[in-house]
């Protein structure tokens, strides 16, 4: 494909994405129905993701702690620095970004395949025939639910990550409990949490809208639903990494 075709294709999708987003912002047909959908998605995205988030966070914290100790060869640096490094790495980067990448894989693919299947089986057409704004009905509750619940999930991930680091460090005998706890309390900057939550909210929006867009415009059959699902994860992940850099540059420097 020539660069011109790639650019035109990219602009086409960008334009269609914004039209798709514009269609979402409407007065709901019936608020109670949207509210029920919103609660269902809260449960899906929050409670449904806790298992994978807990597992990933604990092991992530454990690995960060052990690797930091392993690399800390200077005897002049106190061991409590391990706690500081683990805390800041987890709060600033690993929990918001890595958890969002994990959630892009879990939730993004689920959104794209759910909406894509509805598209190819004419369920979306059925909604439109009834006079329902299908994009708003299917996507808006997902976006709002993700924006509301992802910060909670990421805060849980932060706690579990730091806890995992403590368990692993102490169990491996590479750091004492007192050094680790002293480290995680030392020089704590509360704004780091706010920064992490700003990133998380942005990533929640990216994951839900990009995945919903991929699913909503699926054409064909089962093969295309699979492709949409893969595209949803790939594009969400790329955008998460780009926006991670952009937000870090904008807010922290």
């Amino acid at each position: 494909m020539s660069p011109l075709v790639i650019t035109m294709n990219w602009l086409f999708h960008l334009g269609r994405y914004w039209i798709f987003i514009k269609e979402l912002i409407i007065k709901p047909e019936k608020f109670s129905i949207y509210w029920k959908q919103f609660l269902r998605e809260l449960d899906n995205f929050g409670y449904g993701s806790l298992g994978i988030v807990a597992l990933t966070s604990v092991f992530m914290g454990a690995v960060i702690t052990i690797q930091t100790v392993y690399n800390l060869v200077n005897p002049l640096v106190p061991l409590s620095a391990v706690g500081i490094v683990a805390r800041d790495s987890i709060i600033l980067e690993f929990s918001p970004t890595m958890m969002s990448l994990v959630l892009a894989g879990k939730i993004g693919s689920s959104i794209a395949s759910e909406i894509g299947t509805m598209r190819v089986t004419e369920q979306i057409d059925a909604l439109e025939i009834m006079g329902i704004n299908s994009s708003a009905y299917l996507v808006l509750p997902k976006i709002l639910a993700a924006i509301c619940i992802f910060p909670f999930v990421v805060v849980i991930s932060m706690f579990l990550g730091i806890f995992g680091g403590w368990i692993a460090g102490v169990a491996a005998g590479v750091i004492s409990s007192a050094d680790y706890i002293s480290g995680i309390q030392d020089g704590f900057v509360p704004f780091n949490i706010i920064f992490a939550l700003i990133k998380t909210t942005t990533f929640a929006y990216i994951i839900t809208t990009v995945s919903a867009y991929q699913g909503y415009y699926t054409e064909g059959g089962a093969l295309e639903v699979g492709k949409s699902s893969t595209n949803a994860v790939v594009y969400s992940s790329i955008l998460i990494l780009i926006f991670d850099y952009v937000l870090t540059q904008l807010i922290l420097t």
Partner: peptide
């Protein structure tokens, strides 16, 4: 919208919500 609420449609595959 007023027209749509007067329309019922049966799709080839049924299009029931799974």
């Amino acid at each position: 919208k007023p027209f749509r609420q007067e329309i019922g449609m049966v799709f080839q595959g049924g299009a029931l919500f799974d």
